Computed example of a mutant assay.
Amino acid sequence: MPGVAHFVTPFTYDSLESLHAAVNGLLPREIRVREISPTCPEFHARFSTKSKIYHYKIYNHAIMDPFQCQYAYHSVYKLNPEVMREAALHFVGKHDFSSFANASHNDRSPNPVKEIFRFDVVEMGHMLQLEVDGTGFLFRQVRNMVALLLQIGREALPPDIIPEILAARDRRALARYALSAPPHGLCLMSINYDTELLKPPAGSPAISFGRIHTVSKCKLPFY
């Protein structure tokens, strides 16, 4: 899962490569910093975003693929992708998503109005991949939207229930029909930032992409 973080140092660096190597040396093997770049003081990893793309994977088969169990939600109920696509279109556009947000102690009165550019349901064999692209998302918003689409895909609810729940602007309106989908099917695929804020200030050190160690190739005889 990709991610972006920012931090402020009390001094400047002539080169970022040694810092890059040191950070990766301290992190566990499952986490790697792929790039370190200087940026302007106004940049914020969270609040400077223009849009984000999330994917949620659902494995829709009676028997779960063991290689997917950590990365996809297992639905033993047969889902109808067509009605899920019809329902997902109700999320597209600018809406108040208060009904699809869980309370978070980390948010400071977040703006509940977000814009969804697209919400696709892609079939890949037994896998359904829900792809949502928007300006931003409230706490657990994507998982709550997926949970409702699962109920609609099981044909337990009609697609046009979504406008009704959106209009309520109350989390309890959704809670009557669905709980949050589990987190392991969710993946943040990409983050789009304002390119002007990503430009390094004048006199900054070069971007570090990590040290690349070249291994010499030895020629082996063929028999």
Rank of each mutant, 00 (worst) to 15 (best):
M1G: 12
P2H: 09
P2K: 10
V4W: 00
A5F: 12
A5P: 04
F7D: 04
V8M: 12
T9K: 07
T9G: 02
T12N: 15
D14E: 13
L16S: 00
R29S: 09
I31F: 15
I31W: 12
R32A: 05
V33F: 00
R34W: 14
I36T: 04
P38E: 01
C40G: 08
E42A: 09
A45G: 09
R46L: 13
K50Y: 04
K52N: 05
K52D: 02
N60W: 00
M64V: 09
M64A: 09
D65W: 05
F67L: 11
Q68Y: 04
Q70I: 11
Y71N: 11
H74R: 08
H74G: 05
V76H: 09
N80V: 02
N80P: 00
E82H: 10
F91W: 03
G93N: 07
G93Q: 06
K94Q: 15
H95E: 02
D96Y: 08
D96M: 05
F97K: 06
F100P: 00
N102Q: 11
N106V: 14
D107T: 10
R108K: 09
R108C: 03
N111A: 12
N111Q: 13
V113K: 11
V113P: 06
V113Q: 10
K114T: 10
K114S: 12
F117N: 04
F119P: 00
D120F: 02
M124N: 13
M124C: 10
H126R: 08
L128A: 09
E131Y: 02
V132R: 00
V132P: 01
G136H: 06
G136R: 04
L138V: 10
F139C: 12
R140K: 14
R140I: 01
V142I: 11
V146G: 03
A147N: 06
L150T: 06
Q151A: 07
R154I: 02
A156D: 13
L157Y: 12
P158A: 14
P158V: 10
P159C: 05
A168I: 08
L174E: 03
L174C: 09
L174I: 10
R176K: 13
L179H: 12
A181N: 02
A181C: 06
L186C: 07
C187W: 07
M189Y: 06
I191C: 05
I191G: 03
D194C: 08
T195N: 13
E196P: 04
E196S: 15
L198M: 09
K199C: 06
P200D: 05
A202T: 11
S204M: 01
P205N: 02
A206K: 14
I207V: 15
S208C: 03
G210D: 03
R211N: 11
T214C: 14
C218M: 13
K219W: 15
K219L: 15
L220F: 03
P221E: 11
P221V: 11
F222K: 15
F222C: 14
